[in-house]
């Protein structure tokens, strides 16, 4: 689905990532770790067409990312649900409308029943009518997760989805992502949180990738 071959990337001529090769097979579950500033977010952005590799080949659903127009990238976004590190919403719309936004922009209507269920699933049913600025950090992250999955994407890329929440909520979000993976979705989570990775290992067959020294390494055994 998403495939990187010998990909390099650097902001403004520098080198951040070199010779990264990665293949997200359908139904797989990946963790992406590495020190802050290592390039986790950057790597995820390469995976959903936000950034274009300076070297190497990124293919998104069998299309070369270099040749994609903005509209093609928009279509990719409907197949890849992204939970951003800085969850951005439209502050003038209610939480419910924000969650439905990916459907709205795709010209699809929202089934209110399904939307309610989704909000219940992430524990936000009480906040449906609230506006995003009124949400706590953890609520924002759950809302972002719900928004990422509403179009029923094939791939879910989550950037620090548990960055702002307590341990209990982290586990709950993790469980949500594992559930999605069981439903057949491909999942990749960028996180610092080793505890989270460890507790995931008991629930799902996950591969752990680590970015260190600009390169991507498989770091399964030491956990």
């Amino acid at each position: 689905m998403i495939e990187l071959e010998d990909v390099s990337y650097g902001y403004g001529g520098g080198t951040l990532l070199t010779d990264i090769s990665l293949k997200l097979a359908p139904g797989s579950f990946h963790f992406l770790t590495g020190p802050s500033g290592a390039g986790k977010t950057t790597l995820l952005k390469l995976c959903y067409g936000e950034l274009i590799a300076t070297k190497g080949r990124v293919s998104l659903f069998e299309h070369d990312a270099r040749n994609m127009t903005r509209d093609d990238v928009a279509l990719v976004r409907r197949r890849v649900g992204v939970v951003h590190q800085d969850c951005q919403f439209l502050d003038h719309l209610s939480v419910a409308e924000n969650l439905a936004l990916p459907l709205t922009v795709a010209g699809r209507s929202t089934d209110p029943q399904e939307l309610r269920e989704l909000m219940k699933w992430v524990g936000l049913e009480a906040q449906a009518g609230a506006h995003p600025p009124e949400l706590s950090g953890g609520e924002r992250q759950r809302a972002a997760l719900a928004r990422a999955v509403i179009v029923s994407p094939d791939v879910i890329l989550a950037d620090e989805p548990t960055g702002n929440v307590d341990w209990e909520m982290s586990l709950r979000l993790l469980t949500l992502l594992v559930e999605l993976n069981r439903m057949g979705k491909t999942v990749m989570i960028a996180t610092h949180d080793m505890h989270l990775i460890r507790s995931a290992k008991s629930q799902v067959q996950a591969r752990v990738l680590r970015i260190s020294d600009h390169r991507l390494q498989l770091a399964g055994a030491d956990l």
Binding site: R70, D71, A74, L75, V76, R77, R78, V82, H84, Q88, F89, L90, L101, P102, V105, A106, G107, R147, V151
Partner: peptide
């Protein structure tokens, strides 16, 4: 934000 959730230019 609209771009992030998959809105095309025309939309």
């Amino acid at each position: 934000v609209l771009r992030l959730v998959g809105a095309q230019d025309a939309y």
